[in-house]
């Protein structure tokens, strides 16, 4: 589904590459988490995969990228519409500004792709329900809180049913309960459709609950790539500016003090920790 070989990218006016010889492969239906400190290149990686480079930012780009059989760097975002869905960090600039209700805003992409009108209502309703915005369907997109805007941005992409979903901190402005619900429904939906998901998320606990695999970026380089639980508990994360969960740290300290026997894998989530203590 996604294949990246030796991709390097430098923003215009900078000298240090934001992506440095990145190589990775993602298969159909895989759910992969990406972690790394601020400025490590997570968003830039998504820009490259979504065809936002060099349309949005010029700059130096080297290497090969294939997404769903297309080269996003040559093809641009419009050729990927409907195949690759990208929810980026700033929700406000993802609102079209040309539609006057959430329903219409979510339908905007479907209109552009020429979906027959009879199929629109159902898809729009489903997408709004998935992100918890059903009650606001008639509200203006300009009268939303930050968290609601973020839900809207996600719904506007999910409604397109892309084969590949790139989610750049899609719930950073949601309340914890809401964020958990939204991530869970996205996970259920994408598992059912065998969507390939790349999720950037600061809260490792949620990432571990859904991702099979995790990738760590540091200064534009992939420094770790493997099973989520193994990667997200590695002590080396501390030095890379990624904070491991309290369950990981607690278990690690308990092992260090010989309170519990050393497990195969430290826990990331509460559930994993509970299993360990049993």
């Amino acid at each position: 589904m996604i294949e990246v070989n030796d991709l390097s990218y430098t923003y215009p006016g900078t000298t240090r590459p934001a992506l440095d010889k990145v190589s990775l492969r993602l298969g159909e239906g895989e759910f992969v988490g990406v972690v790394g400190a601020n400025g490590s290149g997570k968003s830039t990686l998504c820009y490259a995969l979504a065809g936002f480079l060099p349309t949005l930012y010029q700059g130096e780009c080297h290497g090969q990228v294939q997404v769903a059989g297309l080269d996003p760097i040559r093809a641009g975002p419009s050729a990927l519409a409907g195949t690759v869905g990208f929810v980026f960090q700033d929700p406000f600039s993802q609102i079209s500004g040309a539609r006057f209700s959430l329903e219409e805003e979510v339908a905007f992409g479907l209109e552009n792709l020429g979906l027959p009108r009879e199929q629109m209502a159902g898809r729009v309703k489903e997408a709004l329900a998935l992100v918890g915005l059903s009650d606001l369907a008639g509200r203006s997109p300009f009268e939303l809180s930050g968290g609601e805007q973020q839900r809207l941005a996600l719904a506007s992409i999910l409604v397109l049913q892309p084969q590949i979903l790139l989610l750049d901190e899609p719930t950073s402005q949601l309340d914890p309960v809401g964020a958990k619900k939204v991530i869970e429904s996205v996970d259920a939906l994408t598992a059912e459709r065998r969507t390939t998901v790349l999720l950037i998320e600061q809260r490792l606990e949620w990432m571990a609950a859904h991702a099979d695999r995790a990738i760590v970026l540091d200064a534009g380089r992939v420094v770790a790539d493997g099973p989520a639980r193994e990667i997200l508990t590695a002590p080396s994360l501390d030095a890379l500016g990624v904070r491991r969960t309290r369950y990981t740290l607690a278990a690690e300290s308990a092992v260090g003090r010989r309170l519990i026997p050393s497990p195969d894998h430290l826990p990331v989530t509460l559930e994993q920790a509970a299993v360990l203590l049993r």
């Binding site: 419009s78 409907g82 905007f108 397109l160």
Partner: peptide, 15 residues
């Protein structure tokens, strides 16, 4: 907008 198919050639529909 482009990523949501705006400007993509082909027939469009409307809500």
């Amino acid at each position: 907008l482009e990523a949501r198919g705006f400007g993509k050639p082909g027939p469009k529909t409307s809500w």
